[in-house]
Amino acid sequence: MGEYKKLQTVKLDGKYLFCDQFDSQRLELSSCAVKVITDFTRRVPQVVLKDVDIDHALYMMVNGHVRSKLVVDHDDTFLGVINSKDLTGRKVLSVAQQRNQARSDLTVEDLMTQKSDLQAMSYSMVQTAKIGDVIETLKELGHQHVLLVDEEGGLRGMISASDIARSLHIPINILQKAHSFKDIFSIIYAHQEMIA
């Protein structure tokens, strides 16, 4: 099988207790926000090409255990964000109908949130912020995630409500806000889908 080998395992037939966590602190709303970011200097961002069809993109997300990806073109230029909710449900059918296309012909670019519609925070601001500050910002924006930019204007990272909820073991409900008539119709469709 090549350069990798199977590691030895042990049977869990004794009494086991959880280890003491000397180096880790329980995260709270008052913890430093840096502890919940996806930092692109430490972890390669999850990206998808703009022309990938929506079924393949959803398959990649499910098997990669991620809910969103950054959308790029073939030159790795950042174009927007796509999440798994964008790839399923009424939004897909609505876009397909508006464009008079088959659902199977839609690509990530057709459903993504364009970068011009996204918000970002400076990484330096997040370094002094609390997790609770970020949650309030996400609620105010009505977005599930916010991008981080460095001093040179490069994409430095991302913070998502789902990552915070997972880290703090609490539910976080971010209600989508409408900033235009188009947003109002999108929100109505999303709520109708949840009810159905």
Rank of each mutant, 00 (worst) to 15 (best):
residue 7 L to Q: 14
residue 159 I to T: 01
residue 29 L to V: 04
residue 23 D to A: 11
residue 30 S to I: 13
residue 165 A to M: 05
residue 179 H to N: 12
residue 100 N to A: 10
residue 64 G to H: 05
residue 150 D to N: 07
residue 110 D to I: 02
residue 175 L to H: 11
residue 3 E to Q: 09
residue 177 K to A: 05
residue 91 K to Y: 14
residue 165 A to T: 04
residue 115 K to S: 03
residue 129 A to T: 00
residue 135 I to Y: 03
residue 36 V to H: 03
residue 45 P to F: 07
residue 174 I to R: 00
residue 135 I to S: 03
residue 65 H to Y: 15
residue 158 M to G: 01
residue 158 M to C: 03
residue 153 G to H: 03
residue 132 G to I: 02
residue 45 P to R: 08
residue 139 K to L: 06
residue 10 V to Y: 13
residue 89 G to P: 00
residue 7 L to N: 09
residue 108 V to M: 00
residue 44 V to D: 15
residue 118 L to T: 00
residue 21 Q to A: 07
residue 5 K to L: 08
residue 189 Y to E: 12
residue 59 Y to K: 14
residue 46 Q to L: 14
residue 148 L to W: 00
residue 179 H to S: 09
residue 144 Q to F: 02
residue 103 R to M: 09
residue 124 S to I: 10
residue 82 I to W: 10
residue 97 Q to Y: 07
residue 40 F to N: 03
residue 125 M to E: 13
residue 134 V to A: 04
residue 81 V to Q: 05
residue 93 L to H: 12
residue 114 Q to W: 09
residue 143 H to A: 06
residue 72 V to I: 11
residue 148 L to K: 00
residue 137 T to E: 13
residue 83 N to K: 05
residue 69 K to I: 14
residue 101 Q to M: 11
residue 146 V to Y: 04
residue 156 R to K: 07
residue 96 A to V: 06
residue 119 Q to A: 11
residue 188 I to D: 06
residue 171 P to Y: 03
residue 79 L to S: 06
residue 136 E to M: 08
residue 54 I to S: 04
residue 188 I to S: 06
residue 11 K to N: 05
residue 58 L to F: 10
residue 16 Y to A: 06
residue 54 I to F: 02
residue 56 H to E: 15
residue 114 Q to A: 09
residue 60 M to T: 15
residue 151 E to N: 10
residue 30 S to A: 08
residue 12 L to Q: 10
residue 154 G to N: 07
residue 122 S to E: 14
residue 120 A to G: 06
residue 26 R to E: 14
residue 22 F to S: 11
residue 24 S to G: 09
residue 124 S to K: 11
residue 43 R to C: 09
residue 57 A to Q: 10
residue 69 K to F: 15
residue 38 T to H: 12
residue 129 A to N: 03
residue 191 H to M: 06
residue 4 Y to L: 08
residue 168 L to E: 01
residue 17 L to I: 13
residue 67 R to S: 15
residue 18 F to D: 15
residue 8 Q to P: 13
residue 83 N to M: 08
residue 93 L to N: 13
residue 85 K to I: 14
residue 7 L to I: 14
residue 32 C to M: 11
residue 45 P to W: 06
residue 104 S to P: 05
residue 7 L to K: 13
residue 131 I to D: 02
residue 154 G to D: 10
residue 132 G to Q: 05
residue 162 S to D: 09
residue 174 I to W: 00
residue 82 I to N: 04
residue 95 V to H: 02
residue 133 D to M: 03
residue 90 R to T: 09
residue 17 L to K: 11
residue 94 S to C: 10
residue 167 S to G: 07
residue 176 Q to F: 08
residue 82 I to D: 08
residue 86 D to V: 06
residue 171 P to F: 09
residue 46 Q to P: 14
residue 20 D to Q: 12
residue 83 N to S: 07
residue 35 K to P: 02
residue 185 F to D: 14
residue 115 K to N: 04
residue 1 M to P: 06
residue 143 H to C: 12
residue 172 I to N: 08
residue 24 S to I: 08
residue 184 I to H: 14
residue 100 N to I: 07
residue 157 G to E: 00
residue 192 Q to W: 05
residue 171 P to L: 06
residue 59 Y to S: 15
residue 87 L to Q: 01
residue 113 T to G: 02
residue 171 P to Q: 11
residue 78 F to G: 03
residue 159 I to W: 01
residue 178 A to L: 08
residue 156 R to M: 03
residue 100 N to E: 04
residue 105 D to P: 10
residue 144 Q to A: 06
residue 105 D to R: 12
residue 149 V to K: 06
